[in-house]
């Protein structure tokens, strides 16, 4: 059994009166790619935000390699450095060039040498086909290029786990592919990842394990083939049906 990287146990999360998670547990092993799917409002994004302590939790525990992830932990900053997060709307820093966006945290937060970080950043940019954009500002990039930059920015921190929060939801269809290919490539390199997505074909291709979240509970969990071909629960079947279309009348 590979080593456990992330362990969520009995997570409880409330927004005022709204119950998001009552008792959610999930274990992520090293090198595993977990895809989380589910209807909107089921808590997918909130779960990722909890893992990064961007949200307060009301009960349970989240541990990264045994160390608690919480706002009370004095080491939160260094834990967050081990958790890479990619947001739906990129969240690049608009006043910095692509290269500065990538270098900021490794240099300032991790205290690494500028030259070494620059070299790595340029190398990573080259791998995602953006070597010519190093000195561009985010506003000069397309959505897909921005998202690839955001992925490189997360990667440059050498995170133990990467969280992808609907990273293609804001993109034009043609740009979706270039971003998903980068993520697929990371999966092939054995990176540990938690991916929230609405791209079902992509989910099937990349996942080691699919988790179907509904109303804050893990409704179903399984291998991608098992989940997509023979969902066990009625709820999952209904959800998957929303992605297929059928025309009742004859086509002439």
């Amino acid at each position: 059994m590979p080593e456990t990287i992330l362990e969520i146990s009995h997570l409880r999360k409330l927004y005022d009166d709204l119950r998001v998670f009552e008792d959610l547990s999930l274990t992520v092993h090293e090198g595993e790619v977990i895809v989380i799917v589910g209807p909107s409002g089921c808590g997918k994004s909130t779960l990722l935000r909890c893992i990064n302590a961007l949200e307060d939790i009301q009960g349970g525990e989240i541990r990264l390699r045994g160390e608690p992830v919480s706002k009370e932990n004095r080491n939160l900053q260094s834990i967050r450095q081990k958790i890479g997060m990619v947001f739906q709307n990129y969240e690049l820093f608009p006043h910095m060039t692509v290269l500065d966006n990538i270098m900021l945290a490794p240099v300032k937060a991790q205290g690494r040498k500028k030259e070494e970080v620059r070299e790595e950043a340029l190398d990573l940019l080259k791998r995602v086909g953006l070597e010519s954009k190093a000195d561009s500002y985010p506003r000069q990039l397309s959505g897909g290029q921005k998202q690839r930059t955001a992925i490189v920015r997360a990667l440059c921190m050498h995170p133990e786990i990467l969280l992808f929060d609907e990273v293609t939801a804001a993109l034009d269809p043609e740009m979706v592919r270039e971003v998903l290919e980068v993520i697929l490539d990371l999966a092939n390199q054995g990176k540990t990842m938690l991916v929230v997505t609405h791209e079902m074909q992509f989910a099937r291709a990349i996942a080691d394990r699919v988790i179907f979240l509904d109303e804050g509970r893990i409704c179903e969990e399984g291998t991608p083939d098992g989940f997509f071909d023979e969902p066990k629960t009625e709820r999952a079947r209904k959800f998957l049906n929303t992605f297929t279309f059928e025309r009742k009348g004859a086509k002439n």
Binding site: N52, L54, Q77, S78, I79, R80, Q81, I83, G84, M85, F87, N89, E91, L92, F93, L104, A105, K108, A109, Q110, R153, A154, M157
Partner: peptide
């Protein structure tokens, strides 16, 4: 606010 969160998630103080 998410710009701030983006910075925190990178481990900046």
């Amino acid at each position: 606010a998410i710009q701030e969160e983006s910075a925190y998630s990178l481990g900046l103080s």
